[in-house]
Design a protein around this nucleic acid. Sequence first.
DNA 1: GATCTGATTGTTATG
DNA 2: CATAACAATCAGATC
Length: 108
Amino acid sequence: MLGRTYRKAAEKAEKPARKGKKDPNAPKRALSAYMFFSQDWRERIKAENPDAGFGEVGKLLGAKWKELDDAEKKPYADQAARDKERADDEKAAYDNKKGGGSEEDDEE
DNA sequence: GATCTGATTGTTATG
DNA sequence: CATAACAATCAGATC
C-alpha cells in the first residue's frame, strides 16, 4: 500500500508546538511499543552510556530497536497491545460522551 | 472501500 | 516547562 510510502515525521521534521485538540475529551491514544521499549531500555542505555544525553540515548535506542528481531519486539508490542485495551476504554468513554449524552453522570 | 492525516505516547537532559 | 531525535500507532477524517 502506497499509504505509508512517505513518513509524515520526515516531511515535517519539525514541531512548532502543535497544540489544540479537536475532540472534546481527547481519547488519548495508546502508547507505542517504543514507549515500553524505552522504559525498559532507558536503564540499559544509561547504564552503558551514563554520559549519553538526550540525543545519544535517543538515537541509540532507535538503533537497538531496529536491531531487535520481531520476536524481541513482541514483548514490547504486547505491552503496547495491552495499553491499547486501556486506550479502548478511554475511547469508550469518549464515544459515550460524544454520543447524545443526556445524562451527564459526573466526571471528576 | 480505500486512502491519508493528525494527534498521541514515552525517554533523556538542558536552557 | 517545552523541546528535540527515535519509532509506532491507529483511529478518525476524507475521497
